[in-house]
């Protein structure tokens, strides 16, 4: 199995068959990231598809200073942002006082009490409530294992801005999780 650069060179030399390997290698990450941002599976697949086609068309412009996946993430991110702007869909702002995070409070491991499926569902629901820029940062940092530097390349935000946004996003995510958990316990009385 060769690295991405090998196949890029092959494609630039006129053999497009190597692109299938690159698509297979990165499709899961790109689709997964797009889905976290736009939330609709059909839209996410279309965005990932268009991003790969765009990448193929502009492969000659890829300077190979960053990883191919970082470059792809950037295309997917831009596609998602322009689509979300067109649709003017934005997550509900999470400003309700009851979600406010108490700084003195220790984060609890309440999620560990749940079963894996329940835990997954709750986390995904909490992620969906975040604004799309925070959702994208959480997804890139924790789920796609991108570094802050790579996220800066993908999103165009500065590294310090990303750290601040990540801090806020993390807080909001856990506020939502805490709230969902308290709702659950009050309903089921557990």
């Amino acid at each position: 199995m060769h690295d991405d650069r090998y196949y890029i060179k092959q494609i630039l030399n006129g053999d497009s068959s190597g692109f299938a390997v690159l698509v297979d290698r990165h499709k899961k990450a790109m689709y997964s990231f797009a889905l976290k941002m736009v939330k609709v599976p059909e839209d996410a697949e279309e965005i990932a598809h268009d991003a790969f086609v765009k990448a193929y068309q502009s492969l000659g412009k890829f300077r190979q200073e960053s990883k191919f996946s970082t470059w792809l993430f950037r295309i997917v991110f831009n596609e998602c942002v322009s689509r979300l702007r067109k649709k003017k869909v934005e997550s509900i702002s999470f400003q309700d006082p009851k979600f406010q995070f108490h700084e003195a409070e220790e984060p609890v491991n309440f999620l560990k009490e749940l079963e894996a499926n329940e835990q997954k569902e709750m986390v995904l629901n909490a992620l969906e409530v975040l604004p799309y820029d925070e959702r994208s940062l959480i997804s890139l940092f924790y789920m796609q294992d991108c570094s802050v530097k790579e996220i800066a390349e993908i999103t165009g935000y500065s590294e310090s801005n990303i750290k601040v946004k990540l801090f806020r996003a993390r807080k909001r995510l856990w506020e939502k999780l805490r709230y969902s958990m308290s709702e659950k316990t009050s309903i089921y009385g557990t």
Partner: peptide, 11 residues
């Protein structure tokens, strides 16, 4: 928690 979530797959 997030790194243990399964990645979604396209068709």
């Amino acid at each position: 928690i997030l790194s243990n979530l399964d990645r979604d797959e396209p068709s």
